[in-house]
Amino acid sequence: MTHPTVPLRRYVGIFAALILLTGLTVVIAFFDLGGGRLHALNAIAAITIAVTKALLVVLYFMHVRYSSRLTWIFVGAGVFWFVIMIVLTLADYLSRGWFPTPGSWSS
């Protein structure tokens, strides 16, 4: 059974990128990027950096980039259902209060 081993340089490079991104996300947290309720820009920046870091770990450290199509489908399906859970839940809670609630029938 032969497996292509990932070059050492690639692993160290990914690690350096992960460290840099961690530094970046901590520094950004000290600035108030503003942007309405929830300070949306701060949250978006932190989550974007986290997703990037997670992608680096999954693709390189977890070897998904070098894995079979079937592995890609498994991983993709997991992420897909996770996104459904988060997005549909927040679609409700975030949009509450966007429109006035009509008066209830009993009043």
């Binding site: 996300t25 947290a29 990027l33 300070h39 949250a43 932190a46």
Partner: peptide, 12 residues
């Protein structure tokens, strides 16, 4: 977990 608990929440 790290950005969610330590970073994002602090600016809400």
């Amino acid at each position: 977990l790290f950005p969610t608990l330590y970073l994002v929440a602090r600016h809400v």
